[in-house]
Design a binder for these strands. Sequence first.
DNA 1: TTTTAACCGAGACGGTACGTCTTGTCTTATA
DNA 2: TATAAGACAAGACGTACCGTCTCGGTTAAAA
Lengths: 203, 203, 203, 203
Amino acid sequence: MAERRRGAARSETARLAILRATAHQFAERGYDHLTMEGIAAEAGVGKQTIYRWWPAKGALVAECLLEGLLLPDRFLPPDTGDLRADLTAWLADVLAFIDDSRNEALLRSLLAAATENAEVGRRLDESVFAGSALMTRLEAAVEASDLRPGAPIAEIIEALVGALVFRVLTRTPTSPGLAERLVDAVVGPSAQAPREGGPSAPR
Amino acid sequence: MAERRRGAARSETARLAILRATAHQFAERGYDHLTMEGIAAEAGVGKQTIYRWWPAKGALVAECLLEGLLLPDRFLPPDTGDLRADLTAWLADVLAFIDDSRNEALLRSLLAAATENAEVGRRLDESVFAGSALMTRLEAAVEASDLRPGAPIAEIIEALVGALVFRVLTRTPTSPGLAERLVDAVVGPSAQAPREGGPSAPR
Amino acid sequence: MAERRRGAARSETARLAILRATAHQFAERGYDHLTMEGIAAEAGVGKQTIYRWWPAKGALVAECLLEGLLLPDRFLPPDTGDLRADLTAWLADVLAFIDDSRNEALLRSLLAAATENAEVGRRLDESVFAGSALMTRLEAAVEASDLRPGAPIAEIIEALVGALVFRVLTRTPTSPGLAERLVDAVVGPSAQAPREGGPSAPR
Amino acid sequence: MAERRRGAARSETARLAILRATAHQFAERGYDHLTMEGIAAEAGVGKQTIYRWWPAKGALVAECLLEGLLLPDRFLPPDTGDLRADLTAWLADVLAFIDDSRNEALLRSLLAAATENAEVGRRLDESVFAGSALMTRLEAAVEASDLRPGAPIAEIIEALVGALVFRVLTRTPTSPGLAERLVDAVVGPSAQAPREGGPSAPR
DNA sequence: TTTTAACCGAGACGGTACGTCTTGTCTTATA
DNA sequence: TATAAGACAAGACGTACCGTCTCGGTTAAAA
């Protein structure tokens, strides 16, 4: 039987108002410049109500992330059977998102949040940059012999996502053909520029 | 004919004291928690003297980076003729540095600085993660046919460095064999031990 | 016939616990720094239970006063037939009480309570500083012709008690012979030692 | 030669704005309900500027008192040669002031301030309730033999002022003839109701 | 016996104010 | 005129209490 402690229960209304206010202020003004007072004011909530449930603004952002209030639905790689094409499509999708400077700023803010809050880092990994969906696609590729058995799938994903993160951090603008080149970098060149017989190790 | 404006010249002593204080406080307390007042106090300098020459703390950090006050001499990839071995050695070197949690925190702080200051981002790219040295090694590899002509060298570097950045952000601990697997991911497996690296470590 | 409304009756246990906690906290930390939350916590009582029965902390203190939880039994003037001796003895008694700095602080706290709560002021008059007992003694003095008929008895008491209150407020330390000099001031010098008391102590 | 330390000097403008705001808020809302934030806001000043120079609101009020921003010029007793008449006139003056309930509340607030700040208590003694002027008048009375030599002057003043303080604390309304009765209580009856031969000690 | 009003403890809530910290600008005296 | 010192207005920080409301549970008169 459910053991319920005494006293009024936590207000879901307040919780949601706080998260929504956080997401709004985050998008509006970035992670720095995000203030507890501003959130409390926008949410119509006492500051104590925030501090009662979250230890710091990083935790607020992490929970927003978890609730999908900060980023659109995760980008999903298609599965057409052509690994390189699928990865390229996924990358192009993400790059298009980043190309909007508003989104780029938001992502950078998210990286800032991750630098000072481990939970945000974890959530970023999990829920933002594809995690399992990408992983599944690559596993399927091994199955289909598009990747050799034993290929370092996790590291391929890290390299791919990391390259994107690095570009956001350094504000490097997207250049044409970037998606293809990145895919080339991590899973080798596409079929129409195939086998050059050279000593380059087969992947 | 040196046109010298009147009045006291900029004090090099003050400049250095400020940069050293910045570097010290940065290492001590991280990018957040870095305060202008703290720097001024430690440097024995008026706050105005800082604001006169730097617009914000991001710029201070960027200049520290440029002066090599924040990070050790850049990591240089060896050139033994064996591309994979060289890259692996370089990676292992960097990973060993990151494995010291003090260094990891420092790097994360640097990423935080990069999120809010474009100059820091640029400098980080250039001076921290090797940039040209790595690039040179890869160009040599193309020359030596260890990489096929037209290989996306820049993207390979981005992927490699990005993976490191991503791991620092998400606080993923280094696992054994990581350097090999990452090299495998971006330039393919080592020829003499094709199965090496094995399956990726679970994350 | 006892008209009783429905529901549980007021808990005497809770009432006493609250008053005792109030008295304890009052003595411990003074009237300011007295908090409803602190009282509730010490009494093991919900805050609402306090607010249900008392409108404010002033009322709590007033009731403590009424119940004799804050001050020792009222100081009673003796009646030896010698008015001046009796008043001096009473005053010396009260002054000795005040001389303990803990008691002085407690009285000052009580004055603080009186400034913001009229009821406390009234109770202070009545139950603390003797009120009727002193009055009775002075009326007896008129009867015995130790005071002339028509002497302003109430004002004499006010002057006496007021002097004490004023000294507590201004933290003036008791000086030797003070009791005698005060009695001298309000009912004239003692006959058998007309010069007694000497000049006032410098302030 | 004046040894001046470096840095900007204390702003007299800010100091005055703060004291004026304090006096205004004090009169408006009383000692409790006086807030540092309210003062800072009304004075157009940062809170730190207040805390830099005053440790607490009690000190602010004490300084206002010293600057004469809270109470009118001290009440001065006349000197017509008739001690009782002069004291009665002074008392009537003060009682008339107290009779305005706004002034009464202000005085009560001042007493509240005195309970928690020793400096206020001291200033109250000195500058509010006549201090030296009353003292001087009584010393002249001894000189003129209106009071016997050795009369406890300081205690007479304490009794007189104390009675007023006590009445303010207990909110006892002024009754007709009060001034005369109080004077009677501390320096004996006036001449037109003289010597009754009784055993009441001569003063 | 059931209902129901009032009590109780606990504790969440929207607020206000606290005293501290930091920011970026301004002022003063010195070098 | 640049500097070290430091005062200033502004405003966010995280904490402490305020007085109200909401929970789940208990008590006892009324229905």
